[in-house]
């Protein structure tokens, strides 16, 4: 969980992105991307395939360096921080990768325990208690000593989420959490995202094109477009569907209308 406060939490956005330009090998994929994510918000980055959703995510979390612009987490600049500062800030967010990205040679408990071993001075017993709790919170109690190869795809994602939550981050990024899951498992994962936000006050940034999840979960969303190389819409998904004048936004969101 992020730091919960007895008697109210601090103000200020969780994430501030200003004038971000992202690309690979000199090729610009996104330019002039600016948005803010409020604390404890479930924020979606949506758009069609190839529009740069995952590229944006990889640049936000430091896997790639943006060519221009700044990213701030909880009021501190991530893009301008030195190596020690970045390492410190890495503790403030967790990331759930598309396939879970669990380390296959470690059990689920060891997967969750590794960040705790790296960043805390907790005893081995305490680390195991926390790792077990995190796995219990994602519904994997009883599977602590299983290896990733021994569990299903949905369970891998949940275990990946438990690992992302290990250090009680303030912000959790989700990269296509529903990809490859059946509708029921997908819905359960959506409920889990909501539960994490409601219980722990975590800010959740979800990269997805699953319309059911977008309408069910998103407090706010930005929509990216490949031809525009940037944001073409921002707001509540339901309002975007009903009020947006951009046909690309309405077309994208109306495919999910019941």
């Amino acid at each position: 969980m992020s730091l919960m406060t007895q008697g109210g939490d601090g103000a200020g956005p969780a994430i501030e992105v200003a004038g971000l330009e992202c690309g690979y090998d000199g090729k610009v994929v996104l330019k002039d991307v600016s948005f803010t994510v409020a604390r404890q918000e479930i924020f979606f980055v949506i758009g069609g395939s190839g529009c740069g959703k995952s590229t944006l995510l990889r640049h936000l979390v430091g896997l790639h360096t943006p060519t221009r612009g700044t990213v701030q987490f909880l009021g501190r600049s991530f893009t301008d921080a030195d190596a020690a500062g970045r390492r410190e800030m890495l503790k403030t967010f967790g990331l759930l990768y598309q396939g879970g990205a669990l380390w296959t040679s470690l059990t689920l408990r060891q997967n969750v325990a590794l960040p705790l071993e790296e960043y805390t001075t907790l005893s081995r017993r305490e680390i195991e208690e926390i790792a077990t709790l995190k796995l219990a919170q994602v519904g994997l109690l009883g599977f602590e000593d299983y290896y990733p190869a021994e569990i299903s795809g949905g369970m891998k994602k949940r275990a990946g989420l438990a690992r992302a939550l290990a250090l009680d981050p303030d912000i959790v990024f989700f990269d296509e959490p529903s990809a490859g899951l059946d509708p029921i498992t997908s819905r359960k994962l959506d409920e889990l995202v909501k539960h994490i936000r409601d219980t722990f006050g975590t800010t959740c940034v979800v990269v997805s094109h699953e319309l059911a999840s977008i309408f069910e979960l998103a407090d706010r969303a930005i929509m990216l477009d490949r031809s525009e190389q940037g944001i073409i819409a921002e707001g509540r998904p339901r309002e975007l569907l009903e009020r947006s004048r951009d046909p690309r936004v309405r077309e994208f969101l109306s495919r999910g209308e019941k």
Binding site: M4, Q6, T132, L133, L135, A136, G142, D145
Partner: peptide
């Protein structure tokens, strides 16, 4: 204690009690 803390503490207690090492 706040209700949220008590709930999480109960969850930690349950996971502690229910976690049985998998004997390989």
């Amino acid at each position: 204690l706040p209700a949220k803390v008590r709930e999480l503490l109960a969850e930690l207690d349950r996971s502690h009690e229910s976690s049985v090492p998998f004997d390989r």
